[in-house]
Design a protein around this nucleic acid. Structure first.
Lengths: 227, 227
DNA sequence: TCAATCCAAATTGTCGACAATGATGCTCCC
DNA sequence: GGGAGCATCATTGTCGACAATTTGGATTGA
């Protein structure tokens, strides 16, 4: 239903790609505790492969900052400190604001229809209120994915989806019961879509920046509460 | 003199890191023709190592979009088309504008002094006019590096230096005689530093965005001329 | 008792060989 | 003569074994 596995689709060609996807999911979902040390042999047998493909997967995960390596010592699963997450949100504000502006200019009518339908689906699902927290989170991600891809700027898309989003998702699972604000976020999504429909780039950027800024402030508030 | 090898310093620990740095330099400098196919065995003996470390280096270069891999077929050196370069410059405009804003707020007096000294050195070197084109380019890079790091936002720094700059450098070597505008760029640098010194984030962002926008327009003009 | 040194165990880094897959050229049939 | 199918070949993917390095503890000396 949702189109979340952007770069995991073609991953099943070789064993190295398979273990890369599996390991990334395991890290992002928190199956492997963040900050923990893991041995290569252990991981290799866990994923049913040899150390060769595993090491290639590790290199790629290192580039994505999901694991940290120190030569001759080993690897440890990255743990996103709160400060780093806030920094990422500031970068998101700049990049996704730009994405929204570009989307307002470059999105095709079909893509805009898709966005509208997505929001409509969210509205219906919201009525169900079944497993809503998780659902809202994934739906939120899907909304942002579409706007980003609507920018039709490959460099921008690769940066946001390929570099930042995995780390954000990892953090969401880490503090599993993250503060949510579904109704408010849903309304903000709707206004962003309206701005995109009107091809109003300035407004779309401003609304998206506010949207992400609100999310960041929400996280910061949550951090203060849990001190 | 210049601090260009940000992430190549720690690279000499293992053979895999060494071949990674060497291969990256070879690609960025154009020693290996962009778009060309290369075999693993060939590369391995070229860098005096086995295929194991080489493959790990390739995986990391793939994450940086410097090489493209297709399973069971091989690798080819990435070739940056003009459109992709322009897209990167738009992203740079957003990210480095943000970096300049943050630098105006967070840069320490010592860092600001360093920036000033750098510009002074450029001014003197400009008088020499010795090998100026290359010099200006590297100096320009160094200036931007410092502003970016002055933002004190790790996520932002990693994105710009770790992801985008290598590709930009590769392109500079590809069209080796890129259009230059040293005097103009130098003046823009000075004004940006003045804004940072005055801790005027708004102005610093605006000037940096204009600076990069000018560079982009310059490239676009150069492209039109060479059609 | 504390510190420095050395040894050993475990883990990572590297290498060469084997298996699997895609590409190239040939042959054969229509 | 042209195209489809097949066999060979080169290249990549994978694996197991060996070498190099770090870490941790044990031992010895002050």
């Amino acid at each position: 239903m949702f189109n979340l596995e952007i770069d995991n689709i073609k991953a099943s060609r070789t064993a190295a790609d398979r273990v890369f996807s599996a390991l990334q999911d395991a890290i992002v979902r928190g199956d492997i505790p963040p900050g923990s040390r893991v041995g290569e042999t252990e991981l290799a047998e866990r994923f049913g492969t040899s150390r060769g493909p595993l090491r290639e997967a590790l290199r790629r995960l290192e580039s994505r900052r999901l694991v940290e390596r120190t030569p001759h010592v080993g690897i440890r699963i990255a743990s996103l400190c709160h400060e780093a997450l806030i920094q990422i949100y500031y970068v998101r504000e700049a990049l996704e604001g730009m994405a929204a502006r570009l989307a307002a200019v470059h999105m095709s009518p079909e893509e805009i229809d898709g966005l509208r339908n997505l929001l409509a689906a969210h509205e219906q699902d919201e009525a169900l209120k079944a497993d809503m927290a998780y659902f809202q989170q994934e739906g939120d991600l899907d909304f942002h994915y579409r706007v980003i891809q609507g920018s039709h700027n490959t460099a921008l898309t690769e940066l946001l989806i390929g570099e930042l989003y995995h780390r954000i998702r990892m953090y969401r699972y880490q503090i599993s019961a993250s503060a949510k604000r579904p109704q408010k976020a849903f309304g903000e999504h709707q206004r962003i879509v309206e701005a995109i429909e009107a091809h109003d780039g300035d407004l779309a950027e401003m609304l998206m920046r506010r949207h992400i800024s609100s999310a960041r402030q929400n996280i910061e508030q949550h951090q203060r509460d849990n001190l």
